[in-house]
């Protein structure tokens, strides 16, 4: 791909998301989403591998359907109430349809099936873009409509997402699919809390983006896409491999690490809203996710896999797939928890 075209596409990727952020009219928001989808498509097929093309086709079909559904629901809302503004939706049918369409765009539970397959077909960098930047525009819309959507639908989608995200990842050996299921589970937590505290949902998204960025970039550093490859990644970069364990535990949400913060605050908020059973079930589904993260940690850190002498040589070579972002996000992933009071003071209260 020519660097000019690459720059153009990256620029348009930003343009689409920014348009969706800035718009208050559904038509403009829809246009932003369309520009976003159009710009990511050639970036996804950059390798022109059959798997990449297949993933792109599936991504295109789901995103185009979701965008059309969003515009249809907002048009219905305009027909019934005469209102086009995003945060003024009032008809229950339209808001429910929009919620479903946004769930399809984000890859939330009843309509999540495209997500693992699409991530599996892409290289790690594009997968990273897909699971972070591409979530921003639909999430901004979700934040604006969340106060009008039926709370039961939001709760069901959120709980189902955390459950499916944990359950689906159990049987996977492919790292990208595991990361996709982890994305589904994390977004489920955000949807659970979005009706009670939108700033908390945004904070969770931010922290999820930081954590998943460091996970993707670390896997990219060691060029590992399966659990097998992870088992010998200590020969390539021993330091990052030991940190990868901690990154995975942070994604799982264990206490001394950053990933604990959103789970902690969300559970606290749910209990504060007098929904202890919901908090209980959400915490239980997080255990399912914890299982596959722990299995990855076990492969990375606690096993010494049988290997031949040639597999041990990569330590002689300098890693080529480095990224300047990786040290920063890794540090944030591991050590942001002590800043929780400051973040709370700045963001939530």
């Amino acid at each position: 791909m020519s660097p000019y075209v690459f720059t153009l596409l990256i620029f348009n990727l930003g343009l689409g998301t920014t348009m969706t952020f800035a718009s208050s009219h559904w038509l403009l928001a829809w246009m932003g989403l369309e520009i976003n989808t159009l710009a990511i498509i050639p970036l996804m097929t950059r390798q022109h591998h059959p798997r990449a093309v297949e993933a792109t086709t599936k991504y295109f079909l789901t995103q185009a359907t979701a965008a059309a559904l969003i515009l249809f629901a907002s048009t219905s809302n305009a027909w019934l109430t005469g209102e086009w503004a995003i945060n003024q939706m009032s008809h229950p049918l339209a808001t429910s349809t929009i919620m479903l369409a946004l769930a399809l765009k984000l890859g939330l539970a009843p309509v999540h099936f495209w997500m693992p397959e699409v991530i599996q077909g892409l290289d790690l960098t594009t997968g990273l873009v897909l699971s972070t930047w591409q979530k921003l525009a639909p999430f901004a819309l979700l934040l604006q409509v969340s106060s009008t959507v039926n709370p039961l639908i939001l709760t069901l989608i959120g709980l189902l997402s955390t459950l499916i995200g944990g359950w689906g990842g159990l049987n996977q050996t492919q790292l990208r699919k595991i990361l996709a299921y982890s994305s589904i589970a994390h977004l489920g937590w955000m949807v659970l809390i979005i009706q009670f505290s939108p700033p908390l949902a945004t904070l969770s998204l931010l922290i999820y983006i930081i954590m998943t960025t460091s996970a993707f970039l670390t896997f990219k550093l060691t060029s590992s896409t399966t659990m097998n490859a992870l088992a010998t990644s200590w020969t390539k970069s021993p330091m990052m491999t030991s940190l990868a364990t901690l990154i995975l535990l942070s994604l799982a949400g264990l206490p001394p690490l950053t990933g604990f913060m959103p789970k902690w605050l969300i559970l606290q908020e749910l209990v504060k809203q007098d929904l202890p059973m919901l908090a209980f079930f959400a915490a239980m589904t997080a255990l399912l996710s914890l299982y596959f993260y722990l299995r990855l940690c076990y492969t990375v850190a606690l096993t010494s896999s049988p290997n031949t002498i040639t597999m041990l040589t990569p330590w002689r070579l300098n890693p080529t797939q480095t990224s300047p972002l990786n040290p920063l996000t890794t540090m944030l992933t591991l050590a942001l928890l002590p800043l929780t009071p400051a973040i709370l003071a700045l963001v939530i209260y």
């Binding site: 791909m1 075209v5 153009l8 596409l9 348009n12 246009m31 369309e34 520009i35 159009l38 710009a39 498509i41 050639p42 097929t45 022109h48 059959p50």
Partner: peptide, 19 residues
């Protein structure tokens, strides 16, 4: 956006040795 689509289509279908 129409110009962008032109580039998108060209990038998707470009290249004789692809596929």
């Amino acid at each position: 956006v129409l110009l962008l689509t032109l580039f998108v289509v060209l990038e998707l279908t470009r290249g004789l040795n692809r596929g």
